[in-house]
Computed example of a mutant assay.
Amino acid sequence: MLVDMAAFTPWSSLAGGALIGLAAGLFVVANGRIAGISGLLGSLLQRGAEGRGEKVCFLLGLIAAPLSWQVFWAMPTVQFSIAPWLLMVAGLLVGLGTRYGGGCTSGHGVCGLSRLSPRSAVATLCFMAAGFATVFVVRHLLSGA
């Protein structure tokens, strides 16, 4: 394996991870709930859900963060090598998986693992294995290379 040292950013990655952990920790202290993004978004779509204000603020913060980034630095160029419809299908499948799996990477991977939840450990192992397998199949078996 070759690491592209020009694209290797351990300090900004560490800072980003620390900020994610801080936000998740503050959310659980302030609200008594874990910061599972799929759960937050799903509960906003339900009638009569409690704590709509803080959930909306948290989700708006996820959108505002990259927008505020571009005030100080240029946004990285994003290029997709697949059709947009395929990205939409992939997003739909990820959404279905989070509902069936009872959570997403933020709920299980960040918050659940930090609470030493066995259920979250199993869920995280399962969705990481599924992601690895999907990338292997798409890049090595279906690409024709």
Rank of each mutant, 00 (worst) to 15 (best):
M1Y: 14
M1W: 14
L2M: 15
L2I: 15
V3Y: 14
D4T: 02
D4M: 06
P10C: 11
S12C: 04
S13K: 13
S13C: 12
G17Q: 12
A18R: 08
L19S: 03
I20H: 06
I20C: 06
G21W: 15
G21F: 15
G21Q: 15
L22R: 08
A23V: 02
L26H: 08
L26R: 09
F27M: 11
A30K: 11
G36W: 10
G36A: 12
I37T: 14
S38W: 02
L40E: 06
L41D: 12
G42I: 13
S43N: 13
Q46A: 09
R47M: 13
G48D: 11
E50K: 15
G51D: 13
G51S: 13
G53P: 05
K55N: 11
V56T: 14
C57N: 10
C57L: 10
L59R: 11
L59E: 15
L59T: 10
L60M: 10
G61I: 04
G61Q: 04
A64E: 03
A64F: 08
L67K: 11
L67N: 04
S68E: 07
Q70G: 05
Q70R: 12
F72E: 06
A74I: 10
A74C: 08
A74T: 10
M75G: 09
M75S: 13
T77R: 15
T77I: 10
V78W: 15
Q79I: 05
S81R: 09
S81I: 08
I82R: 12
I82Q: 13
P84G: 04
W85V: 05
W85D: 08
M88E: 02
M88A: 05
M88I: 04
A90S: 12
G91E: 05
L93W: 05
G95R: 04
L96S: 00
G97T: 00
G97K: 04
R99W: 05
R99G: 00
G101I: 06
G101L: 07
G102H: 01
G103E: 05
G103H: 05
T105L: 00
T105A: 06
S106I: 03
G109K: 02
G109L: 05
V110Y: 00
V110C: 00
V110N: 00
C111R: 07
G112Y: 01
L113V: 00
S114L: 13
S114N: 06
S114E: 08
R115M: 09
S117M: 06
S120Q: 09
V122C: 03
A123C: 03
L125Y: 01
L125E: 02
L125M: 11
C126D: 02
C126W: 09
F127G: 00
F127R: 01
F127Y: 06
A129G: 04
A130R: 01
A130H: 02
G131R: 01
G131F: 02
V135Q: 04
V135I: 04
R139L: 12
L141A: 03
L141C: 02
G144M: 01
